[in-house]
């Protein structure tokens, strides 16, 4: 029965990973730009939610709109003002550029917010959910559901709306950087500017697992990574979870670089 619980924890975690990775995957797949800034964007979104809750009392589920808006604006500025200038340049140039931008944003956040870990403890938590033998904290489940919902929404937007079709067709994109601001994990996980690279690492693994530039791939990859990490934490200890996911990534890159659900051609 313990395995059911671990699997459930993994799925909840994986929903958040999927949400983290989908924007990253989009920018990578559509623009052919690896956005090293991605991890820091997520952390910034978390801070927006944190300050909205602590100072204004806005519930994180609602401040998603604010966090999304702020990051949309920031993403737009970065994309239109800086990245677009070199978007057709070789990999090395775009990679170095976003790395430089990441150093700036990350350092600025460290100075502005300090390196202290912060977390939101909700005044009215949703309690816990009990499905048979499995216990799950309600807030996490709601956050995961929201994350998956947003991911699906993004997918529909890409498939059905004219903007989305433009993104796919013209390979010219402005929204992606902002859409990645929608992160929901902020409700439970303690945040600190130091977390940026952790999220970036997860996004990498999820993209390679699921396949590049594919929204369903990111969803599947995220859920899979969540479950894998959950089980390795149980069997080998939580400190091994990162090592195992990186090892998995290397093996996958070696045997199947297009990902489990990826389309060929993105190389």
């Amino acid at each position: 029965m313990i395995y059911l619980q671990i699997a459930a924890n993994g799925l909840v975690l994986g929903g958040l990973y999927a949400c983290i990775a989908v924007g990253f995957s989009l920018v990578w797949g559509v623009l052919n730009v690896i956005n090293i800034l991605h991890g820091s964007f997520i952390v910034l979104g978390s801070y927006v939610a944190y300050f909205a809750y602590v100072h204004l009392g806005i519930h994180p589920f609602i401040s998603i709109v604010i966090a999304g808006g702020v990051l949309y604006a920031l993403g737009y500025l970065v994309q239109a003002g800086i990245i677009n200038r070199v978007v057709t340049a070789p990999v090395l140039i775009t990679l170095t550029l976003t790395f430089g931008l990441d150093l700036i944003l990350n350092n600025a956040m460290l100075v502005a917010f300090t390196a202290d870990y912060r977390g939101i403890s909700l005044a009215h938590p949703l309690g816990s959910l009990e499905i048979g033998p499995v216990f799950l904290p309600g807030d996490r489940v709601a956050a995961m559901a929201l994350a998956i919902l947003l991911t699906i929404l993004l997918y529909r937007l890409l498939r059905d709306s004219s903007i989305g079709r433009a993104i796919i067709a013209v390979r010219m994109d402005r929204e992606a950087a902002a859409l990645m601001g929608v992160d929901v994990k902020r409700i439970i996980f303690p945040i600190s500017p130091l977390n940026g690279p952790v999220f970036l690492g997860k996004a990498f693994v999820v993209c390679v697992l699921g396949g590049l530039g594919s929204v369903p791939g990111a969803l599947a990859g995220g859920l899979l990574l969540g479950v894998i990490e959950s089980f390795t934490s149980y069997w080998l200890g939580p400190e091994r979870a990162v090592t195992v996911s990186f090892a998995l990534l290397l093996v996958l890159l070696f045997v199947r670089p297009s990902g489990l659900m990826g389309r060929r051609g993105y190389e």
């Binding site: 990578w28 052919n32 690896i34 990999v91 990679l95 690492g201 990498f204 390679v208 400190e239 091994r240 990162v242 090592t243 990186f246 090892a247 990534l249 290397l250 890159l253 070696f254 670089p257 190389e267």
Partner: peptide, 26 residues
Amino acid sequence: ILHLRGHYFAIASLIVAEMLREIVNT
């Protein structure tokens, strides 16, 4: 990893240093 191109190569090589650090730590 040299059969990978572009970003995939970059990421694979980036992860190698992280892996080595983890191994040294353990």
